[in-house]
């Protein structure tokens, strides 16, 4: 089942890539959050069952959700609130959100109004993420 305005792809064993599309409507936040968490849980449950059948033990490593911001030229307080809420929501199901490919203009704008640390982590790209293992 596709999520309107978003493209969610599983990468690796328990990581996911979330690419927002042009028609993403963040005003429909509640439905989007439900869809995303439900998709993440389904995929993790399937993986966990498969791993368990194969090795007899389950993996409890937190999954990662990479949010691709490459197409987002600017992040305003509304969009930031969406990212923050999404990060907090997925954290509730043991998924860590990492924003990747943030553009200089977006980082500049976000740094202007951000008052505290965001709920999500940031990385240059998927391969650039290294802090989760620390």
């Amino acid at each position: 089942m596709a999520i309107p305005g978003l493209h969610l792809t599983q990468i690796g064993s328990s990581d996911f890539l979330l690419e927002p599309l042009r028609n993403l409507n963040i005003r429909d936040q509640d439905r989007l959050l439900e869809n995303i968490t439900s998709r993440l849980q389904q995929a993790r449950a399937y993986d966990s069952a498969r791993a368990s059948a194969r090795s007899g033990s389950e993996s409890f490593r937190a999954s990662r959700l990479y949010y691709d911001l490459a197409e987002q030229a600017l992040i305003d307080p509304v969009y930031y609130a969406w990212l923050d809420t999404l990060a907090r929501t997925v954290r509730a199901i043991n998924v860590e959100m990492i924003c990747i490919h943030m553009r200089p203009t977006a980082a500049y704008a976000l740094a202007q109004f951000m008052r505290e640390l965001p709920a999500f982590e940031t990385a240059l790209d998927i391969s650039g993420w290294k802090r989760s293992g620390q």
């Binding site: 924003c99 990747i100 943030m102 200089p104 977006a106 980082a107 500049y108 976000l110 740094a111 202007q112 951000m114 965001p118 940031t122 990385a123 240059l124 790209d125 650039g128 993420w129």
Partner: peptide, 12 residues
Amino acid sequence: IQMVRAVQLMGS
């Protein structure tokens, strides 16, 4: 401080 924050937001 904003500059440092922006650098961190870009993932560096």
